[in-house]
């Protein structure tokens, strides 16, 4: 069932979270609640200096990952170092730059400021999850066409923020665009091109790409 919901989402652009809330909120709540219990039980058992691992399940780009984590592991660390999802970049690791932006239940958040244990039960989307197979998603395509980056290191985060913005505001004004990407610093300074890429991406999305 989860799979079919996701497939539908990618076709319709409908927020899966919203879909869940309206159709299957009971089941979703139950799924969320069972995991924290396990986490608490684990944590209560071990406090060894080197152990202290907690079993967790992370839903990332439509796949469920079961793994043991240290409570101090950030979602960013788990994505990159444990799951090999290197598209999400590490930079300031203090919630001050945006390179690690991911979607958590559809909202843009900093993976560096989110503990992996806290992301349990949420739907996580990284830049890899915005691809359409081997094809670029509309936001990514717009970034290439408008040259909305230079070194590209902050770009994954920018792309994810724009995705979040356009899901919420499909036709943003320039001020909404500015605000929407204001949590993603681009040291190469490509902002003017990013603004244009957002407008282009809005068109591409409207065109059903």
């Amino acid at each position: 069932m989860r799979k079919s919901i996701r497939e539908r989402e990618s076709r319709t652009g409908l927020s899966r979270r919203r879909f869940f809330n309206s159709v299957a909120s009971g089941a979703a709540e139950a799924a969320i609640l069972t995991v924290p219990g396990a986490v608490a039980a684990e944590a209560a058992v071990g406090q060894a200096a080197d152990g202290n691992m907690v079993k967790t399940v992370l839903d990332i780009n439509g796949r469920s990952h079961s793994l043991s984590v240290e409570p101090r592991w950030t979602l960013l660390y788990v994505l990159r170092d444990r799951l090999g999802l290197m598209g999400t970049k590490a930079s300031c690791e203090r919630g001050e730059c945006g390179a690690c932006t991911v979607l958590i239940d559809g909202a843009a958040r900093y993976a560096c400021m989110t503990l992996a244990v806290e992301a349990t039960g949420a739907e996580i989307t990284t830049v890899e999850g915005l691809m359409r197979g081997e094809e670029l998603g509309p936001v990514q395509q717009a970034f290439v066409e408008e040259d909305a980056f230079q070194c590209g290191h902050c770009t994954s985060g920018q792309v994810v923020s724009v995705e979040a913005l356009l899901r919420k505001t499909p036709q943003p004004s320039i001020e909404q665009i500015r605000e929407g990407v204001s949590g993603n610093v681009c040291r190469c300074g490509a902002y003017a091109n990013i603004f244009r890429a957002v407008q282009k991406a809005a068109e591409l999305r409207k065109g059903g790409r």
Partner: peptide
């Protein structure tokens, strides 16, 4: 461009 926006650039 593809590598830089898709997250595949290493």
């Amino acid at each position: 461009g593809y590598e830089r926006v898709s997250g595949t650039a290493e």
